[in-house]
């Protein structure tokens, strides 16, 4: 009995130490990525190529989702607001929800599922097939050549995607609110403009999406780089990318929001 308990405790301790160790190696990986970033800018086409694969390839899912999210927000918002006789505030509701929260957060979650998994699988497979080893043997740093361009591509893509998400979401909300429900066009926009603040809402939303961009891309890259070089290892790493990115985004969102609201 006692032995069993000790075993359970030992197992727990082992897992905790393992987590902390991974966190440490993740931090070191991040540091190296920053140090070896020079090439991503000197040879900008390396980064542009990755922006294509992470940003452009995510466009479709982001835009379609944004449109639906905006429409649903308008429907739900109208349903509640009309009870208080303030259905013109629907524009404010849609815009604020999108710009402050849903734009950055949903974009990051979709990004983790679309681009993050692709990054992890690609790098994991490059490791499995010894492409990374081969690169190292050719005196080329895989961090500089493979990791850093993908990192910067993700960091650049995320705020652009989030801005597109918010904008298309507002359009989706507009289409439901104005032509379909019949809210006054002028009221829709003017209420929105009177209540959405450039600094407090839009800039903070962009800050969030940049932070999410760093987190999601870094997690995807690290999981790929750290994956055991087997088919099973890569598939598990891909799953971990989605789980860890989602948790990181939601956790960071809470932290950032509390800072932004307090100040």
């Amino acid at each position: 009995m006692l032995k069993r308990l000790a075993e359970v405790l030992r197992g727990m301790g082992h897992r905790i130490i393992d987590r902390i160790w991974r966190l440490g190696s993740g931090a070191r990986f991040f540091l190296y990525t920053l140090i070896y970033s020079g090439e991503s800018f000197r040879r900008i086409h390396l980064t542009i190529r990755e922006i294509y694969f992470t940003g452009v390839m995510s466009l479709l899912i982001i835009l379609v989702s944004a449109f639906f999210v905006g429409m649903v927000l308008a429907l739900q918002g109208y349903n509640t607001l009309q009870k208080y006789g303030s259905s013109e505030a629907i524009g404010v509701l849609v815009a604020l929800s999108l710009v402050r929260e849903l734009g950055p957060v949903v974009t990051a979650l979709l990004f983790a599922g679309r681009a993050g998994t692709a990054i992890t699988a690609e790098i994991g497979l490059m490791k499995t097939t010894e492409q990374l080893s081969a690169m190292e043997m050719m005196a080329v740093s895989p961090i500089a050549r493979v990791v850093a361009p993908r990192f910067w591509a993700g960091v650049v893509s995320m705020p652009l995607l989030a801005a597109l998400f918010s904008m298309v979401g507002v359009l989706g909300g507009y289409i439901v609110a104005v032509p379909v429900i019949g809210v006054d066009n002028g009221a829709f926009w003017s209420q929105m403009q009177a209540n959405v603040d450039f600094q407090a809402d839009i800039v903070n939303g962009v800050i969030k999406s940049v932070v999410f961009g760093v987190a999601c891309t870094m997690i995807a890259l690290f999981e790929g780089f750290d994956a055991p070089p087997t088919a099973e290892g890569v598939s598990r790493a891909t799953t971990r990318t989605v789980v860890n990115s989602s948790l990181a985004v939601l956790g960071l969102d809470f932290i950032l929001t509390s800072f932004m609201i307090v100040t």
Binding site: M126, T129, E130, S133, A134, E136, M138, A139, V140, R145
Partner: peptide
């Protein structure tokens, strides 16, 4: 390492580059 060339067991070619670009890779890098 620049003085060494290594042929990996299964080639380890870069799957996202063509044959031409694979061979050009070390030249372009160095």
């Amino acid at each position: 390492r620049r003085k060494m060339g290594m042929l990996f067991q299964f080639g380890a070619l870069f799957t996202d580059l063509s044959v031409y670009e694979n061979v050009a890779f070390p030249i372009r890098e160095h």
